[in-house]
Nucleic acid binder design. Structure first.
Length: 684
DNA sequence: AACTTGTCAATTTTT
DNA sequence: TTGACAAGTT
């Protein structure tokens, strides 16, 4: 198989062929960086004789990793593509943890992975135990702080507390207990999946040599969004010949809130001496009108590497600036316009609606349903947040990992089995007195003193059901089949099935859905155990993968409109893009501009600007920028101003669209503020 | 243990 | 205005 590079430009070709040490590729939006990555990998495999399993390419989302895999198939064939290490940092971490569980936990074996919901639950429990919990405490804010420390690889003892910030103090107090709890439960949170491997590799030279030795080439996409821990992991895994290539764009750095350090990309050349830098800035994706908007927006950013996208395509449609009255009207108009564009000959899957927050999706969703337009909602992972799904997963987890106290607590009295608050307290006291774990106490309920008969019976029943499940897993492991069946029996056994099945018809649609959701989970387990080849199918592996890479509902990608948050849209593109809710307070989001918000920094607004830039540059042929004049807030109608990102756009490439007396939005923003004034007067 | 009432806060992004 | 959640009641 010969690899053709004829359709690549000079800079792209250079990046594909370069093999002389560390390489930094600064790639503008739409400049073909995925193509560079895939062709580089193909070139290494086909021309340079590198074995596919010696290449590790890390991207940021599962979607991006999967897409890369798909694109590799026609280039190198399915067999070779299968052997490449294409993953996210987090799924790499899962694999690492599985292979190195002894080094991570002191003893080889199963472990649990906690998602953010689980982690918040753990923080809540610790805060309660330590007497820190009060009603209005924002547990997510506490966890966010801990997470930032972890990602900076700052341990509990090294934390520098800013006493002025209340949450800093609380988080610092919770942090050591949180870490201890994770360890005692043999659990990893999302951050651990990167931090723990990075820390382990950092201090264990032999291990580092073994892992780095597996690879001859390491590539990282979206490098501008990596954090300290991820950078450390990259350093530790960089092969001896320093064949490390990173691709990124500082203008698309949108994960600062998650601890991403743009300095990773800005200082890459000094971290890896001898780095070669290649810039690819020619944009092959968008019409020049779209790029003018993108360039104009970024020109006003305060700190960045100076560069602008170079258009290669011919001029096309003007940018459509749309002003509607309310978010509801906006959603309605968007739905109507999608239909019109479809009637003009676009396929549904060529269209995308992008927004700042997932909340905004709901209105659009409703309107699309009314219009009968097929759509696909990316992200917004509502499925795994559903209570019954989390409960079912907790049942499975405790069966697999006997130390997963968090999961056991979650389902201890659900469905109700007589183990109330008092009983839990008894169990805790018993565990403390005997120096044994809480889980142990539950399994030894018959020896707990002063225990209500109902509570004792409930614990015993649950413990026996879990043990029966473990036996089932043993036997299915021997035969290698039937995990899904075992899970169903288990859910029946513990009464989950009965509790989730509506007894009489008067219960609503949602009630009917609940058991169906659990069944969906079981079906995906079944599908996984029958199709998975790489790993030996085990419930433990399934659960670990489930948390890190959530399977999309309804896999087949049909002809559907895409609804996505701006964050979720990164790396993707569509012929027609509608960017909605371009209002102050929505984009940029209130939390980044509100002086009352605890820590709004000016740099946050820059990040919002980059988010806008990311959204704009998703469009190939046509771009809509829409906003509304007023919205409901706490039951009152409030006028809202246009997003600051709409001011200073070149008017000659824009056309304005308004409806129902909504005053037109001038490209300069003047007319817009006049409209705003009018709306304000009307509100009085 | 389940149900009812009342209070209070609130509105980001994702692995 | 709504929704989440805690306290209070049966």
């Amino acid at each position: 198989m010969a690899l053709s590079l004829g359709h690549l430009d000079e800079n792209q070709k250079q990046a594909v062929l370069f093999t002389g040490g560390p390489l930094l590729v600064l790639a503008g939006a739409g400049s073909g960086k995925t193509r560079v990555l895939t062709h580089r990998i193909a070139h290494l495999v086909l021309e340079a004789g590198v074995r596919p399993d010696q290449i590790l390419a890390v991207s940021f989302t599962n979607k991006a990793a999967e897409e890369m895999g798909e694109r590799m198939v026609p280039l190198v064939g399915a067999a070779a593509a299968q052997k490449l290490w294409l993953s996210t940092f987090h799924s790499f971490g899962v694999r690492f943890a599985r292979e190195e569980s002894k080094a991570l936990f002191g003893e080889a074996g199963r472990f649990s992975i906690f998602d953010q919901g689980d982690a918040v639950g753990l923080v809540r429990e610790i805060a309660k135990r330590e007497g820190l919990l009060d009603r209005k405490m924002d547990l997510w804010a506490v966890l966010a702080r801990i997470s930032l420390w972890k990602n900076k690889m700052v341990g509990p003892s090294a934390v520098k507390v800013n006493d002025a910030v209340e949450y800093d103090r609380i988080a610092a107090e919770v942090y050591p207990h949180y870490e201890a709890a994770l360890r005692s439960m043999r659990a990893l949170d999302f951050d651990d999946l990167v931090v723990r491997p990075a820390a382990l590799l950092q201090k264990d030279a032999a291990l580092r040599e073994r892992w780095a030795g597996r690879f001859r080439h390491l590539m990282v996409d979206e490098f501008q969004d990596t954090n300290v821990a991820q950078m450390e992991l990259v350093k530790a895994l960089t092969p001896a010949l320093r064949n490390v290539m990173v691709v990124g764009d500082d203008d698309q750095a949108i994960y600062g809130w998650r601890g991403a350090e743009v300095t990773n990309i800005l200082d890459f050349a000094s971290t890896f001496p001898g780095t070669t830098t290649i810039k690819i800035l020619r944009n092959y994706r968008s019409i020049p009108e779209v790029l003018s908007i993108a360039n104009a927006a970024m020109k006003q950013a305060t700190r960045r590497l100076e560069k602008s996208l170079v258009a290669t395509r011919r001029s096309g449609d003007k940018i459509r600036l749309v002003t509607l009255g309310t978010p509801e009207e906006e959603a309605k108009w968007i739905a109507g316009e999608l239909r019109r564009v479809h009637q003009d000959g676009r396929r549904w899957c060529d269209l995308a609606v992008l927004y700042r927050s997932n909340l905004q999706a709901r209105l659009v969703e409703e309107e699309l349903r009314v219009e009968g337009i097929p759509f696909r909602l990316v992200g917004g992972q509502q499925f795994f947040e559903k209570k019954e799904v989390k409960d079912a997963i907790a049942y499975l987890r405790i069966a697999v990992n006997p130390r997963d106290e968090l999961s056991l607590r979650r389902i201890l009295n659900y469905p109700t089995r007589g183990v109330g608050d008092v009983a839990v307290e008894r169990l805790e006291r018993f565990a403390l007195a005997r120096q044994r774990s809480f889980v142990h106490a539950v399994f030894q309920a018959e020896t707990v003193p002063d225990f209500a008969d109902a509570a004792r019976a409930g614990c015993q029943k649950l413990a026996r059901a879990i043990e029966r499940m473990r036996e089932r897993l043993e036997t299915t492991a021997a035969s290698g089949k039937g995990l899904a069946g075992a899970a169903l029996d288990y859910f029946e056994d513990v009464g989950l099935r009965a509790d989730l099945t509506p007894k009489d018809a008067k219960e609503g649609e949602a009630a009917k859905q609940r058991w169906g959701n659990v069944e969906f989970l079981v079906r995906s387990l079944e599908r996984w155990e029958t199709t998975e080849k790489e790993d030996k199918p085990s419930l433990a592996t399934f659960l670990q993968r489930l948390t890190v890479r959530r399977e999309e509902e309804g896999e087949a990608v049909g002809d559907e409109v895409t609804l996505s948050s701006l964050h979720g849209s990164k790396g993707l593109e569509w012929p027609v893009v509608m960017l909605i809710g371009l209002n102050e307070g929505t984009l940029p989001h209130l939390r980044t501009i509100d002086p009352k918000a605890s820590e709004a920094a000016p740099t946050d607004v820059d990040e919002e600007r980059r988010l806008f830039y990311v959204g704009v540059t998703r469009a190939r042929d046509r771009l809509y920028l829409s906003r509304f004049l007023r919205r409901e807030l706490r039951g009152k109608e409030v006028p809202t101003s246009p997003s600051r990102f709409l001011s200073g756009l070149p008017a000659e490439i824009c056309e304005t669209i308004t409806q129902d007396g909504a005053a037109p939005l001038g490209a300069e923003g003047n007319a817009a503020s006049a409209a705003n004034l009018l709306a304000m007067l009307r509100a009085r």
